[in-house]
Write a protein that binds this DNA or RNA. Sequence first.
DNA 1: TATACAAATATTGTATACAATTTATCGACT
DNA 2: AGTCGATAAATTGTATACAATATTTGTATA
Lengths: 230, 230
Amino acid sequence: MSGPKAHIRSSEIGSAIAKAIHEHRVIPGTKLGEDELSEIYGVSRTLVRSALQWLSHEQLIDIQPNRGAFVSKPSLREAREIFEARALLEPKTARSAALRMTDQAATHLKAHINAEHAALAQNDIGKALRLSGVFHIEISRLADQQTIGRFIESLIARSSLIIALYRKRDSALCEKHAHNALLEALSQRDGAKAEELMQSHLVDLVSALDLSEKTTKQPSLKDALRPENP
Amino acid sequence: MSGPKAHIRSSEIGSAIAKAIHEHRVIPGTKLGEDELSEIYGVSRTLVRSALQWLSHEQLIDIQPNRGAFVSKPSLREAREIFEARALLEPKTARSAALRMTDQAATHLKAHINAEHAALAQNDIGKALRLSGVFHIEISRLADQQTIGRFIESLIARSSLIIALYRKRDSALCEKHAHNALLEALSQRDGAKAEELMQSHLVDLVSALDLSEKTTKQPSLKDALRPENP
DNA sequence: TATACAAATATTGTATACAATTTATCGACT
DNA sequence: AGTCGATAAATTGTATACAATATTTGTATA
């Protein structure tokens, strides 16, 4: 009875920007100027502003009054909250998905995983990252819970911001096996196992991040560039 | 690092409309014309449209392309999903809230309950309903989980639509005691009890609704107004 | 009387114009 | 030289104007 069918053009723009954010082609802090975007997409600022408001509500960008829109930089606290929320929602959702699993869905997910691996093979980290997120979203769709699914979708989008900001150096984005194991459990309609795998998968994701206090304050440039301290 | 501080005027309009929806002063299906609203709030359609897009994203209204914005009429399925989501989020949130409870918060919540009772005494059902929702939101704030809190807030707003559509006749909105008991458990910092009470409270809320299949299709006016059937 | 079509009206979608605010640039002063 | 301040440029906020679409009204016809 309700749906984001309206404002098609502006939501396309919003999706395009969201995708770029998700793929780390624009990084947190980047300013998204209205004139610039209206130039890029060949529309007036009206539609651009509409798209920006959408992104702002998704908390992917931060609109500062009279200053402009910037790609969000989630705080450490937000980062923790987002993964706590995912831990609360996704495992149970994976369980539901397992119970409603079909062969068709299995091949669909398998294709996704392959695309993800292909992207990794091409060293297209951004694309792999996004596809990884889409995999989680597909699972929530299978669970046939649109409401919770939307929440998860939103959390995953923001997760990509967190990864951009807090990822440990040299940490794997997503173990190759995690999604495969998940798919296995789903295909076997083993709800309990899917729930457990999803939970540990999320723990692994967090462990690839550096969410310690230190990172909170930026290097402050002044300190970072000062030649040396005794 | 992100917040809805921008577009202050339009978000005020959005809040005003959301409040009216929450209080059942405008009911599901009502058309929200842009000219009408811009007249009411003394602003241009630009700001009205901005507010409407916000409400649309909150799924409180449904924007139909070239037709206009209508207060959402959640389907039976959506209604069930929303309360399932609440059941997933709110009990654990209540538990967290209990652990972080302060005396100050207790008096604050107590005041809320009193205001709720006062509204009921004045037969201001709408206001009581909204305050009842705010009570739940306050609890989620106490849990100090902004992300989950926003989800809950969104779910509660949509719940008021569901209540408007599917409430059983003569069913109590909220047992007077439920919120008091919850406050009691919170004050005692009894997380387990708070979680349990919240869970059963939500069950009670659902049981005051008629979510059977039949209710799906509207009375269709034609049937409703036809004088009599044999 | 009811239905079908057509003009007229009203409403939403988009772009543009103007106002308000911030940011950048230049110059004066210490 | 560096900082403070004023003016100029650029950017966002809001309103208005025009275009596209839907709804209503009226009229003719069966």
